[in-house]
Design a protein around this nucleic acid. Sequence first.
DNA 1: ACCGGCACCGTTATCGCTAACATACGGCGC
DNA 2: GCGCCGTATGTTAGCGATAACGGTGCCGGT
Lengths: 342, 342
Amino acid sequence: MSRPTETRRPLTLRDVSEASGVSEMTVSRVLRNRGDVSETTREKVLQAAKALGYVPNKIAGALASQRVNLVAVIIPSLSNLVFPKVLSSISDELEDTGLQPVVGVTNYSPEKEEQVLYEMLSWRPSGVIIAGLEHTPAARAMLENAGIPVVEIMDVDGEGVDSVVGISHRRAGLHMAEAIIAAGYRRIGFLGSKMPEDHRARKRLEGFQEGLAKAGIELADTEFYAGGSALAKGREMTETILKRTPDLDFLYYSNDMIGAGGLLWCLDQGIDVPGRIGLAGFNGLDLLDGFSVRLATMNACRGEIGRKAAQIIAGRSQSNMIGGEVIELEPVLEPGDTIRKA
Amino acid sequence: MSRPTETRRPLTLRDVSEASGVSEMTVSRVLRNRGDVSETTREKVLQAAKALGYVPNKIAGALASQRVNLVAVIIPSLSNLVFPKVLSSISDELEDTGLQPVVGVTNYSPEKEEQVLYEMLSWRPSGVIIAGLEHTPAARAMLENAGIPVVEIMDVDGEGVDSVVGISHRRAGLHMAEAIIAAGYRRIGFLGSKMPEDHRARKRLEGFQEGLAKAGIELADTEFYAGGSALAKGREMTETILKRTPDLDFLYYSNDMIGAGGLLWCLDQGIDVPGRIGLAGFNGLDLLDGFSVRLATMNACRGEIGRKAAQIIAGRSQSNMIGGEVIELEPVLEPGDTIRKA
DNA sequence: ACCGGCACCGTTATCGCTAACATACGGCGC
DNA sequence: GCGCCGTATGTTAGCGATAACGGTGCCGGT
């Protein structure tokens, strides 16, 4: 009820050691469960620590031991819904390894990414998980020189610094194109975000166009957006593109959220999906489970990506084997109800 | 192209100081922009640091200066969509204060919260922003003894440790009840999550029931869920509750996501909304902008909450004024299209 | 009685950086 | 010339923990 001390000086090991009558070293051993301590002193120490409300100072600990139990996780955005998913699979996997993820957000800006990376590396984490393969030269240099395991995730189309876990967005786009063509669609439009720094979306589009080209087809129209609620944007863009190019018979969206918006708009308009027009998105958001008509999409293996990445970091922080794994996962087409059955 | 050194020993201030021919202290001053350094040496040092690829060690810096530029932000979940929003407003507000948010997630578990808090406090952050007012006794004690500004956010119905920024969920529920009754609805059902630790949802329900009681009405039926895609669950639950109690004329959902699922189901079924049945959710997700029929909801001021909380932390970390502010924000009813006009 | 080994615990020396103080130096006023 | 000030830099002493090693009992074997 009354304050333990007058001026609240933060507690240190010394306080606990004095309170329990043993040396700081022994207290440290007890608190870390490391080294031999008799059961009786262990009890004494724990009791004293609890009574004082002692919280160890990891800053000092990390400096002395040269070990930090943090893993830097750097992603472009939290509002994308994709990334929280990856994040949670990372933290699940890290749960009982003693490692802890720390998140940094770049807003799809390479400069911000460089900043965030610098900031995080200055805490000397035991590993870095970072989205994408495209970084500023300085950022890349930092990753190479950090001397810790680095896992670049989400994308395998390019050269990685160290380990890489992801899917080929190029091939994902290509496969989607093939599926669409196989289903008999020919007048195809693309709708996506304007962000020039979303390399994965760009690669999907490139792969998609390549797939179309193989069948001698070109994109009939495209529409881009920036900012705002993706669902609402999907709705607007769909209306816009169909007004401009009414004979489109398929719309490929760069993500599920705008795809879902487009789907809602089509349903509202009473358009026959997938007869008159087919739709597909990308990501496999479980959000889509809530629609009566299920949008075709491609599962981006987000959970698996996070898990593998975490495993690599955890594995390498124990045994210091030399890394450089590249794990390519295979995205799965989920045809849903918005592509005609062939 | 070739590695700078054979065995890559992490760089220290000493390396930079040797490379630039000045003392470590001067290098430190340059890198922190603190104290007087002549322009010429500043240049020399910066150049050396860049050439070596030096990244400062904040661990050592923090230990020496007893200052850490981190703010712990502790929230129940990242998949709720509400919290990423709060997070981003916090980090926007902190952007140019030199402070940096670090996120911890509790999964709505008080024990996990206690763990995460302990973990974060052991890094000696300059402040804590934590969701909710309900904590374990140990967690509360830690917050009280940490000697740093603490802001509990989202909720004001209860006793805070230090500062509090949020809305009254009890009153939010109550107001929603009044609005619904004013619109002429009488057979009212509630649909929500089963989580016993979601105190804010509980308080909304209590306030809602209180509002109904004032008009001499009781909840006609309730339905709860746990886990899974909220949109899909909303759909299922709505079907279930309406099968069980067909004469309900209003459904109050504990969040917008399940509300949206319910709305989709009603539209699919061709049910007249808001004539035959009214619907309302809670949170004001901008996701809802994408629907042709807009769900009634209540804006929970998430952006404002994050901003104010960050301001309090930032303000107090500069001038050490004594805290204890309580800021109650006023949620706004957004009637949308799913409540009859009175 | 002596020695080796084990279980337990203390001492010392960092870890990389910064606060606080000390020093060097040039210029200025008197 | 002397003292003094201000600027630009160096020196010293920690910050709070841990690694590495050094004791100290106690036991059992010989």
